[in-house]
Design a protein around this nucleic acid. Sequence first.
DNA 1: TTGAAAGCGGTACCAG
DNA 2: CTGGTACCGCTTTCAA
Lengths: 340, 340
Amino acid sequence: MAKIHEVAQAAGVSISTVSYALSGKRSISPDTRRRIEEAARELDYRPNAGARMLAGRRTQIFALTEPFRADTHAPAHMAFVLATSIAARRYEYDILLLTEEEASAGMRRVASSGLADGVLVLDVAPDDERVDLARRIALPTVFIGVPDDHEGLVCVDLDFEAAAALAVDRLADLGHRSIGFVGHPPTAYEKSNFPPRVRRGLEARAAERGLDCTTVLPESDGPRRAPVREAVRDLVEAGATALVLHCDDTSHAVALDELATLGRRVPEEVSVVSVGATFDTSAFHPPIDSVPLVPSASCELAVELAMRMVDGGEVPAAVHLIAPEYRAHGSTAPPGGASD
Amino acid sequence: MAKIHEVAQAAGVSISTVSYALSGKRSISPDTRRRIEEAARELDYRPNAGARMLAGRRTQIFALTEPFRADTHAPAHMAFVLATSIAARRYEYDILLLTEEEASAGMRRVASSGLADGVLVLDVAPDDERVDLARRIALPTVFIGVPDDHEGLVCVDLDFEAAAALAVDRLADLGHRSIGFVGHPPTAYEKSNFPPRVRRGLEARAAERGLDCTTVLPESDGPRRAPVREAVRDLVEAGATALVLHCDDTSHAVALDELATLGRRVPEEVSVVSVGATFDTSAFHPPIDSVPLVPSASCELAVELAMRMVDGGEVPAAVHLIAPEYRAHGSTAPPGGASD
DNA sequence: TTGAAAGCGGTACCAG
DNA sequence: CTGGTACCGCTTTCAA
């Protein structure tokens, strides 16, 4: 807990010189700078956080609001929190956690106490209560996800429609005419925001390309995930030559397992593509093509926008969609290997 | 972002009176207090965080270090983060996240910049690098978990040995003579700290009570969790009349499913007890008795100890074990219902 | 290129 | 019971 005064003394300069040398906000003679940096290192000096907040105009802190909902998918959520933290550190920013009830009240709190320079909103619900709050407070706020009513808000998200369309295009280009879609359980299409976007994008593009597309939204409970197995079986037996998956990792594994059980080889007999996954689909057997949801991409953009806003830059109050990317792992091929 | 000055003006008092009225650190006439509180509410006043850190001696922030290891169990981890945050808010403290590489470097950083009043260490590894760091920095530090070398550290954790012993006692008291233990995969017994403690506690108490105890540590991968099913089958067929589970939730579900498949009713033919689970074992079919690991219990104690240390109180540098609690849900009964 | 000094917005001591 | 004010440690003018 060395103070700037001690560093100044050790380097034989004034405290303002130390401040400038360390912040780089004005030119310092090479020799002086060297002495200051050395002294700072020796003393393990770091500017006092409180003093810096008070004197400077920044807290160097972003608040991260995350209402741990009951239906929150923990692994994905963790990936987003981690990605946010890493992205923030690139700008020397720390993350302050606002959870549960605090997710809303906390926003108000950090705003009026000046504890944070901005707010990042995670785990966004379609009718998120933080939407109104974001409009009310003065702090720069970025949503990672898209609420139904996002008028005037800065939002960041994967372009799920485009992601689904990309998967469809791949399959259509390979010559598939009939595809099956295995989605999340039905409730996910009300509680969450992105499942409907995937479904919409998929069905729209399938229609455009003239593909038959059958959607199944199996429940995912039970130790055997029977509904998923059944869905896969039905789709394949009904003639689908390709499956698009938008569901959790276990359901992915179960779907592949069921295909194996049915004796349908991937990709020779059935092509498989995953959309919007945050987990590693190349680790499955066999590895699965993916149009992934990349937490670091969303979070990096979100942090970058937040930084721009903090710096007083202009950021369009709009949904900033991230272009999807197709990652091939060998699970797609032209149809025709199958013989019913 | 109203300031104390404005509140003072609105209430017609001096700023020091406002400060005292709001902090409650000295007696104020009821009338004055009322006027001040009203003014503060109207202006949505909250003391500026930076100013308070600087003038007061507290940041009102705890740093939470959590290296998101690859093998970290996300749902459990989230529960701990959440519990920590909630516990901290009771003392008007916020949680600052230190993740990944920052988990260590960040500790140094917050210590020398005075960004936090204390550090809470999550996801503790047996040979955790944060152990040395904790000894070096001046900040009050509490480990939620027990590293191998915990000399001089303040640690909090469930008494896993006692938890396992409690499960054994229950079964022994009911008359069981032969029990099976289904644990985590073998690697967990090196990477994590508590699995060995459960195993030790279980086997020791089983020996004391003269029970036959067979341990199996099945791998938990594969969509069907075949190793877990096999373990359950083997144990039951070898004559175990009760199972103690210390594994993830999916393995619990699979184990129960396998018992159902084998036609062994719970608890008439096989008793089942879960040890150290963070999930809700009463939601299984059938509901399962549990000696749970309760995140809120650990985190509340950890925060309480940290607060005491911040306040300059004496806290023994030792492992603070939390007594386990048996939660009956009807999955245990005397043996003997089975007829091979 | 460098230094002196005025705040930043509170807290808490010292008076009254 | 209340007010005045000296800090807290840093950033950033303003001067030199």
